[in-house]
């Protein structure tokens, strides 16, 4: 193995930060879709607030990625002018909105992963990343708690809510392993104290989710026979293309438009 060149270093560092930013950006878009569609207006607000927290994280992270990359791309250029293959988010966050139980299952896994990650990123050698993580920890702890509260209520609710919560966990299961899979950029970043190795938080994430499921009288779903992979390398499911088309079309149709 040869020592990475400066260019490799820049690419890997940028790629790592972009992965974190794209997770937050894409999931914030999916959560925004719940406005007016949640069971109650209070829940519209709650999911919208979670989405806005994530959007805030995405803005800081994409801005930072643009600066690291050094090619003059700002947060908007990165959010609106990249195509599917350049997005580095995990496939869990791009999956189409399902029912409310699906969303709580997804949020429980994703927020548990994000919290375990951000708690460690507070000590990142990348000061900007450490700063973003420091602010995000409190937000993400709340997201995780919100999802946990609902999973417990649905799991330990009526026979129908129990059944539907269990089905939702099963549907989300194939997208869980990717959260804690290591890719080239995260290995590179972890070795330099910039990032956190996703596999290093796997046990913690699973333990937390298991504790919530136990309280919710739910079984852990069967391990998925197939699981998503390579979102961090730009390999995505069909859903991301439609999501980006909706998210990006105004910016692309009216370049430079402002309020």
């Amino acid at each position: 193995m040869s020592t990475p060149t400066t260019t490799d270093t820049t690419l890997l560092h940028t790629a790592y930060v972009l992965g974190l930013g794209d997770d937050a950006l894409v999931y914030s878009h999916r959560l925004g879709e719940w406005l007016t569609r949640a069971p109650q207006i209070e829940e519209d607000m709650a999911l919208g607030n979670v989405g806005l927290d994530l959007l805030g994280q995405a803005r800081s992270l994409l801005t930072h990625a643009g600066e690291l990359e050094g090619r003059g791309r700002d947060e908007d250029a990165l959010a609106y002018l990249r195509d599917e293959r350049s997005f580095r988010n995990v496939q869990l966050v791009e999956q189409p909105r399902g029912d409310f139980a699906d969303e709580m299952a997804r949020m429980l896994w994703f927020a548990s992963y994000q919290l375990a990650l951000y708690v460690r990123l507070v000590d990142s050698a990348d000061e900007v990343l450490a700063g973003v993580a420091g602010k995000a920890v409190k937000e993400v702890a709340y997201h995780r708690d919100h999802a946990a509260q609902w999973v417990v209520r649905l799991g330990d609710g009526t026979p129908e809510s129990h059944e539907r919560m269990a089905a939702a966990l099963q549907r989300v299961a194939p997208y869980v392993a990717e959260l804690t899979s290591d890719d080239e950029a995260s290995v590179w970043a972890a070795e330099r104290g910039i990032g956190v190795l996703p596999s290093s938080v796997e046990d913690e994430v699973h333990e937390y989710v298991a504790s919530v499921l136990a309280q919710a009288t739910l079984e852990e779903p069967e391990p998925a026979r197939w699981h998503a992979r390579d979102g961090r390398r730009g390999i995505h499911s069909e859903a991301l293309g439609y999501l980006l088309a909706e998210m990006q079309h105004i910016h692309r149709s009216h370049p430079g438009a402002a309020w």
């Binding site: 109650q40 207006i41 607000m45 709650a46 708690d145 919100h146 509260q149 209520r153």
Partner: peptide, 15 residues
């Protein structure tokens, strides 16, 4: 509106 007091507290926090 909330299904119980704990969730009401969370909804109130958001609103």
């Amino acid at each position: 509106h909330a299904p119980d007091a704990t969730m009401a507290l969370r909804n109130a926090r958001d609103l």
